[in-house]
């Protein structure tokens, strides 16, 4: 996140915010949310504690100033924001001067696509004292603290956009299960525009996996798909001498490129503990040429194949 310079004093050290947690399973949200679609609701929760007395003092605001917390979100491919929660902070606890809050949000799945970004801001609502000291926030809405969390969505595979099609009509092998459609010459282009996993609607097992993903045999099939996609995309990168291993400065998570997606696969599933990305990439490139089965086995192990959906 780029640093911002505000035209007034702020005191971010007096705000202590926990990570956003998934209400469904009580775990912190990671890089992606599984099982999102337009019909679902994304339920998140976080706690946030504000040392009101210290913060007001350091910002030059009076004790009568009122503060609020605002939570807004937007999908990665759109600029339209929505406010999902606005909380007015109450009177702080008498002895500690702190205000503790639990933020619960519910975001309609139909508003989202590709990547969800959630921004939390602590804002000045009003300072009735009429304080006109220099470098002190005055306007309603002045941001005193903010943070932003992004999480990838898209498709039942969590990380990847998938779509069921008739392979017969597409001219693809008629009994195949899936096909990874990707333009790998465009590593710096947005992954969500260049990558699509096609599932063969003509294949009964695949059709069943789409309609009943929680059935045991469907789960095994989708687990296999995940491993295959990771190995397919990483394999393409390892064979391409022009793959940009180092992320360019300023690369945005809100719209990950194909290269960023491959890098995240390597870091999440294929690198060794304490191994840097570049070292891991070079090692995997050797391994892919010498013994590609070993890389596949490593992916299976990291992705807990088969059975990750049941665990």
């Amino acid at each position: 996140m780029a640093a911002r310079a505000y035209p007034y004093r702020t005191a971010p050290e007096h705000v202590n915010a926990a990570q956003w947690m998934s209400v469904e399973d009580g775990t912190p949200i990671g890089e992606y949310l599984p099982s999102w679609d337009y019909g679902s609701v994304v339920r998140l929760q976080r706690s946030i504690e504000v040392d009101m007395l210290a913060l007001l003092g350091e910002c030059g605001l009076t004790a009568g100033a009122r503060l609020g917390i605002n939570v807004r979100y937007w999908p990665g491919t759109s600029l339209l924001r929505q406010t999902v929660l606005h909380v007015v902070l109450g009177v702080p606890e008498a002895t500690s001067g702190r205000s503790s809050n639990v933020l619960d949000i519910e975001i309609p799945g139909a508003d989202l696509a590709a990547v969800l970004t959630v921004e939390t801001t602590l804002v000045l609502l009003e300072d009735p004292s009429g304080n006109d000291e220099a470098f002190v926030a005055r306007r309603a809405g002045s941001i005193l603290w903010r943070d932003e969390a992004s999480v990838r969505l898209e498709g039942t595979a969590g990380l990847l956009p998938v779509a069921p099609v008739s392979f017969k009509e597409q001219g693809l092998p008629t009994d195949a299960a899936w096909y990874v459609s990707v333009d790998s010459s465009e590593w710096t282009s947005a992954a969500m525009g260049n990558l699509l996993v096609l599932l063969n609607d003509d294949n009964p097992a695949v059709r069943k996996a789409i309609t009943a993903p929680d059935q045991p045999d469907s789960a095994v099939l989708l687990d296999a798909l995940t491993v295959d996609v990771v190995c397919d995309l990483v394999g393409r990168a390892l064979l391409d001498e022009e793959f940009p291993v180092i992320a360019p400065a300023g690369e945005k998570l809100s719209e990950p490129s194909m290269a960023a997606l491959v890098r995240s696969f390597i870091v999440s599933f294929l690198s060794l503990p304490t191994e840097g990305l570049e070292t891991a990439f070079n090692r995997l490139r050797d391994e892919w040429q010498r013994d590609p089965s070993r890389l596949r086995a490593r992916a299976q192990s990291s992705l807990r194949f088969p059975g990750s959906r049941g665990s």
């Binding site: 679609d37 337009y38 019909g39 679902s40 799945g109 139909a110 498709g155 039942t156 956009p161 998938v162 779509a163 069921p164 099609v165 009509e169 597409q170 001219g171 699509l196 096609l198 599932l199 789409i210």
Partner: peptide, 11 residues
């Protein structure tokens, strides 16, 4: 278009 697809779920 034969080269167009739909989202897997959600509508």
């Amino acid at each position: 278009s034969l080269r167009a697809v739909f989202a897997a779920t959600g509508g």
